[in-house]
Design a protein around this nucleic acid. Sequence first.
RNA 1: GCCCGGGUGGCGGAACAGGUAGACGCAACGGACUUAAAAUCCGUUGAGGCUUGUCCUCGUGUCGGUUCGAUUCCGACCUCGGGCACCA
Length: 844
Amino acid sequence: MHSNVVNGGYESKSIEKKWLKKWEEDGINNLKDSSRKNKFYCLEMFPYPSGEPHMGHARNYTIGDVLARIKSRQGFNVLHPMGYDAFGLPAENAAIKSGIHPKKSTFTNIRKMEEALMKMGMTYNFKEQVITCEPEYYKWTQWFFLLLYKMGLAEKKEGPVNWCGSCQTVLANEQVIDGRCERCDSEVTRKNLSQWYFKITDYAQALLDDMELLKGWPDRVLTIQKNWIGRSEGAKINFKLDDNDEEIFIPVFTTRPDTIFGVTFFILSPEHPLVEKIVTDKETRKEIDRLKILISKQTDIERGSAIAEKIGGFTGRYVINPVSGEKVPVWIANYVLSDYGTGAIMAVPAHDERDFEFAKKYQIPIREVISPTGKISAEIKEVFTGNGKMVNSGQFDGLDSEEGRQKIIKYIVEKNIGNAEINYKLKNWLISRQRYWGAPIPIIYCEKCGMVPVPEKDLPVILPEDVDFKPTGLSPLSYSEKFVNARCPVCGSPSKRETDTMDTFVCSSWYFLRYCSPSYDKEAFRKEEVDYWMPVDQYIGGIEHATMHLIYSRFFTKVLYDAGLINFKEPFTRYYPHGVVTLGGQKMSKSKGNVINPSEIYDKYGSDTLRLYILFIGPADSIVDWSDKGVEGSYRFLGRFYRIIAENINKLEKSGFLRSKNIAGQKSARIVPDTLDGPSKELARKLHQTIRKVTDDIFRFNFNTAISAVMELLNSISKYNSLKKADDFNDMLLFETTENILKLISPIAPFIAEELWEKLGMEYSIHKTAWPEYDPEFAKEENITIVFQVNGKIRDKKDFSLDCSEEEVSRYAFSSPRIVESIGDKKVVKKIFVKNKLYNIVIV
RNA sequence: GCCCGGGUGGCGGAACAGGUAGACGCAACGGACUUAAAAUCCGUUGAGGCUUGUCCUCGUGUCGGUUCGAUUCCGACCUCGGGCACCA
């Protein structure tokens, strides 16, 4: 290690080294204390062990660490755990490239992460980490799979899936961004495969309803989730195929049953199973087949975006509108999706943008049935999607569209042709992956018994280590004879194991429960521990997990609740999304080479500087751009802090104050307000105001302003120290201020605080002391500045005593030359007095 | 296209309930210390004006409104960021 960057007497390197060692020996970073009554579970999203924590991790974990430390100092029993989301593609991809086994690289990386987190002074109990790729953990991930299976929430289904050709695996909908793979950015194609799904859609409504319990979540996150779940209310209506031989009903979903008289055509998605059946004419069939192939070749981007061109064709057949009795043509079109609603729609071109565009292109009639004015338009030039009066709608004419919707639903229910229905955009969670580095799905296929779940007593299904994990599109595990061949748990005959592994989001959907009893080996979690610690009081992590991890974790929690295994419905009481750290306005990324690692910073300036800077850089939830100058500023501040406090300690030593009293043990005989005056009183006030502000700001996640308050206090101390007259000086006050400023900075910059605490002769450790509380008597301002305005413009300012009367203020106002001059010969019509703030004279 | 957030000095950002806009920090400039530099310490620093003051005018994306008073509330627009995006 090289010497410190020049900074007065502040030797961050040796200080941090010294305390790291001491803290580790004493286990001081474990904040659990079962003798305390109230608990606080502070959780930060655990990292994927990529090798070294990045700046986002540093930000995330520093925020959590500060909160956990303060909660502990405020007397809470604090659970502040750490672990690793250790399964996943990157390790496997790296293994394919470099030949190093994922297990080896993962554990090497974990050690590195661990060391870095320790160096940053994080208060995790490193002895109780949770690592998802260990059999002791994934045994219970598999147990969860079985639980969902038993509850009918896990199913194997043939269906179109998102296939990433480069990763050679299936992706969940959430992992596809703009038709591309989230990880490798290559284009995602559709493929029909038999895959495992978790039926999260069964919980769509519960996920929406229970948002009411998430008062401690930012609205924007709930909005994202609502959007993702995509609930829409409407009706399912059956249209009968116009056919002489057979009664075929085709249901559609619509949110606008009130527009049913405006249906001028009907569309099936190209993948709709009835397309095959109903197209009878040979020539038409040719054309429809051609279209189907054309559309199936379209990528998600070409087909899926709102601006994509609409294409389709007439099937030669008709359906009967069940309400109007009208016969309308059946088309297929690329813009009708097979996996939403019923895969078929009633098209109302006058009142739907997409149908309008399609009708115009293919010259299909457009009929107005909702009119904003109630009058029928002569010509339809544009779509009207709003509410209005129903027209051209038979017995429903004249109704408001909202009312019409209810009336039509009532009608179709009575006539037995449909019903009210709710649809969600949320799709079932596809969890199988044709990859090696994941938790094996605990299922066995027996020729006689069929699909058999692995009995709980046989868990874990161990992921074998001697496997060839080259990507072939098939699960690497399928090449391992040893793994694949098994005995049927039911009949004992030779069987085959499921060779897919689980999406890593399954592992991370319950880790917060495991933290409550990390080494318990009888169950996934010890109930008493979970009852005590859960739900998480404060969760902190990137907003990019709003739709995946956070929804899945909420889903898992609800499943456990319904299984009667836990007594809460939501895992995270409060959630705080921190912002990302950019460099030059760009997202830091290894591939672009624009990365600043936390280690560079703590190696050069120390972890205190890193922590301080990352909190001071800007509001914790906003995107912040890295600035080397800013880091230096933080480092300089700590140097200045060190010098000024050391000077205080010096002074107190010289005056004999520190020797004369057994300060460390002394809690009583502190300053009484009346005994102070002048600069001392001012400093005492500043101190108590700072205690109040820092505490308030930190719990509002305003770390930047909390730090600026500490800076201001330091400036006040510095000024106080430069006082000429010795009588103005109060040793006790200086001591108390020193003691408290150290406490205030201690969760943010734990090393320097501990060092100076020791220098002050206090009992080890500052991190075990109670968090300071402010005294309102001290914090109270004596004088306040009243602002004088004339017609809202500031004309004068003057100090008055707190709570002074309007009369007093008014008397001054009308004697102030500047104010009198501003009034001139105008007439005073009104006087506004805001206590302790301002006096405004209104003239005309 | 729809739904959320933001736009404040040269820069990052303060202003918690409509009441002193620019806290704190960075950068810059001036001074002290030094043979010198670095570091440190002390100042100045939104723009413009002159009558240089405890001064005046302007100023929180643009335009308008409510109010004695608007960065804060309302309306329209411009712009940046995020989410969703043929979801019937």
